[in-house]
Design a protein around this nucleic acid. Structure first.
Lengths: 202, 202
DNA sequence: CCCATTAAATGTCCATGGTCATATAATAGC
DNA sequence: GCTATTATATGACCATGGACATTTAATGGG
C-alpha cells in the first residue's frame, strides 16, 4: 500500500482534533464539512474516506473533547493535595479563561443543548462521556457513600456548566464576572456540602 | 387601509409566539423562515414585511419566551406563601415535565449556548432578559442584602438550567432522573444557603 | 362602488452544505 | 522502475435556506 501505514489514522486523528475545537467554538451545526477538512489541511472530497457521515465526525469530535476534560481533571487530582482538589477543578472550570475560550474548553456547556436535539445515537455517546466526567468528580468527594458523591458531583457539574453558559451569554463585562463569581461560590458549596454538614453535626 | 388596523400586529405576534416554541424545540438555527411562517399559517414570502431579518425574529421570539418565564415566576411568587416560593419555582423548573417539553420551557437551557455565539446585538438582548429573570428570583430570597440575593439567584439559576441541559442530554431514563434529583437538591440548597447559615450561627 | 393602500403570496436568486462518483497522486512491494 | 493499491483532490449534484422583487388580494375611505 502507498503512504505509510499510520498515515490515514494520523490524518483521521488530525481531522477529529481540529473539528472538536471548531465545533465547540461554532456549534454542532455552525461549520460545514468543507471548512472542517480545510482546518486539517485537506479538501472536502476526501471526507467520506474517513467518516460515514458528518454526524459520525461530530460524535468522535465530541468524545475527543470530553476525554481531554476527563484527563485534565484526573491530572489535577493526581497533582493536588486531597483537600484542594475540588476547589482547583472548580476554579479552573468556572474562570474567565474558560469562558473566553470555548474551543479548548468543556464540551458540555458548548454543545450540550444542541446534542440534546440530535439522534439517539449521538445522545447516547454524549451521555456516556458525561457520566464518566461525573464519576471523575465523584471520585474527588471523600467520606460519603458513592451514591451521595455521585449526586453531589452531578449538582456541582450542573452548576459549573450552567454558570459558564450564562456568563458566555453575558459576554465579558461586569454581569458576566458577577455570574462567574456566583457560580464558583455555588459550585464549591455544593461540592463540599456534606463535609460541612458533617462538621456541623459533629 | 385594507385589513383591520390590528391585523398586522396580530399576525406579527402570532409568528413570534409560534417561532418562540419551535426555536426552543429545534434550536436557534434548527428551523428556517419558510417553516416558521408555515407554523403561523402563512407562506414565506411575507416574512420581510414583518421582520428586518431572521435574526430580528430570533431576538423577538427569545424575548417573548423569557417574558413568559418571568411572568410565570412572578405568578408563583404571588400565589405561594413566602417560605415555599423558592422551592415551588425550583420544583417546577427542575422537573421531568420541563425537561421533556423544551418548546414551552425556559429559553436559557434551550438556547443559551447558541445565543452566546450570536452577534453582540442578539447577546445583549438575551443578557437583558436573563438579568430580569435573575432579579425575579433574587426578589424571593429574603433577609439578605440585595447583592447577596442576586448572587445566590445567579448560582441557583445556573444550577437549575445546567441540570436541565444535562438531563436532556441523558434522555429520559434513570441517569436523567438522577440528574434531575441532584439538581433539585443543589438548587434548593443554594437558594436557601444563607438562611441555613444564619440558623447555624444563631 | 371603486380605487388607493397595504398584507400576504408567488416565484426567483444565490450561497451554503452534505454527499458521492470519479480522477489523481503517492508509495510499497515485486 | 513498474504496478497494484489506497489516500486525497476535483468536481458535480441536489436540497435547504435566507433574502427580496414583484404580484395578488383584501378592505376601508371617498
Amino acid at each position: 500500500m502507498r503512504y505509510s501505514k499510520e498515515h490515514k489514522q494520523e490524518t483521521h486523528a488530525r481531522i477529529v482534533k481540529k473539528a472538536s475545537v471548531r465545533l465547540r467554538e461554532k456549534g454542532a451545526h455552525g461549520i460545514g464539512v468543507a471548512d472542517l477538512m480545510k482546518e486539517a489541511g485537506l479538501t472536502h472530497g476526501g471526507f467520506y474516506a474517513h467518516f460515514d457521515s458528518r454526524e459520525a465526525l461530530v460524535i468522535e469530535a465530541f468524545a475527543y473533547a470530553m476525554d481531554r476534560s476527563i484527563e485534565h481533571w484526573r491530572k489535577i487530582a493526581a497533582e493536588t493535595p486531597a483537600e484542594k482538589r475540588l476547589s482547583t477543578i472548580i476554579d479552573s472550570y468556572v474562570s474567565p479563561v474558560h469562558r473566553d475560550d470555548p474551543g479548548r474548553g468543556c464540551a458540555v456547556p458548548a454543545l450540550g443543548a444542541e446534542i440534546a436535539r440530535e439522534s439517539a445515537k449521538t445522545r447516547k455517546a454524549f451521555a456516556a462521556k458525561l457520566e464518566q466526567l461525573i464519576d471523575v468528580m465523584a471520585d474527588q468527594i471523600p467520606d460519603v457513600p458513592r451514591k451521595t458523591a455521585r449526586r453531589q458531583a452531578m449538582g456541582t457539574l450542573a452548576t459549573m456548566m450552567g454558570t459558564l453558559v450564562m456568563s458566555r451569554v453575558a459576554g465579558s463585562g461586569e454581569l458576566s464576572d458577577e455570574i462567574l463569581l456566583a457560580g464558583r461560590e455555588a459550585a464549591l458549596a455544593r461540592a463540599t456540602a456534606t463535609k460541612k454538614a458533617r462538621a456541623k453535626v459533629n
